[in-house]
């Protein structure tokens, strides 16, 4: 028997595509955000509202990732924004190669912001860099306030946490301790920005929009 030291990074093929994407976006000074959450947290509703509310200020496009169907891309296109649907055929995350292909299909010259709506999954997508400028984790209050403690990776790596569906908190429909989530997330990630929002009613959305517009300004510099 003979042992051979290898010391080689795994998933380096993904990292190479991620780097290509990142370089392309940096050259074009475009902001690209990777949206990650459990299924049903309201990512698409959030994006559709963001695109509609900011349509006079920012030009946005979306890369949609789902196991099957182009339902989400159709919802985005209804706002007149361009959307490319990636059907992963069962894979639990988007890869940088898939995003690379999708970026070629988007009308990049006509966009300020590219959102990647990852496959609904709080675990796997956090392990695959796509070349984005930042990750945004969306957590809806119905999922419970223990998620940063249970799924630390995505909260440690995200620039922003959007706590969605806060309209469900009124009337005690759902028990959710925003303070606990904030403490747990900041323990992992001191600089994470936290915005409690309701994509349905629009509550809290202006703070998210301000952050988004500031990021676009910084990316253009």
């Amino acid at each position: 028997m003979e042992k051979v030291n290898v010391g080689k990074r795994i998933l380096s093929a993904n990292e190479q595509f991620a780097q290509q994407n990142s370089q392309l976006l940096a050259q074009r000074r475009q902001l690209c955000l990777n949206m990650i959450s459990s299924p049903g947290s309201g990512k698409t509703t959030l994006l559709v509202r963001t695109i509609s509310d900011l349509k006079d200020e920012l030009r946005m496009g979306v890369i949609e990732g789902d196991l099957r169907t182009d339902i989400d891309a159709q919802r985005v296109r209804a706002t007149q924004a361009p959307a490319i649907q990636i059907e992963t055929q069962g894979a639990c995350h988007l890869s940088a190669k898939q995003v690379n292909d999708a970026l070629e299909q988007l009308p990049l010259d006509a966009l300020d912001v590219i959102f990647i709506e990852n496959v609904g999954n709080l675990v796997c997508p956090s392990a695959f860099e796509l070349g984005e400028n930042g990750k945004v984790v969306v957590l809806s209050v119905a999922e419970g306030d223990d998620k940063p403690a249970k799924y630390p990776a995505i909260f440690a790596k995200s620039k922003v946490m959007l706590i969605n569906k806060i309209d469900l908190l009124s009337g005690g429909l759902v028990e959710f301790d925003i303070e606990r989530v904030t403490t747990d997330a900041r323990r992992l990630n001191k600089s994470i920005e936290i915005f409690p929002v309701s994509a349905r009613t629009g509550a809290g959305m202006p703070q998210w929009y301000d952050w988004l517009k500031e990021q676009v300004r910084q990316t253009r510099r």
Binding site: M1, E2, K3, V4, N5, V6, G7, K8, R9, I10, L11, A156, R187, L188, N189, K190
Partner: peptide
Amino acid sequence: VDDFELLPDAPLVLEEIEFDK
């Protein structure tokens, strides 16, 4: 103190292979 900065996580690495020679 519970105030700290998280350092970069270790990457995924193939360290060593054992061969039957």
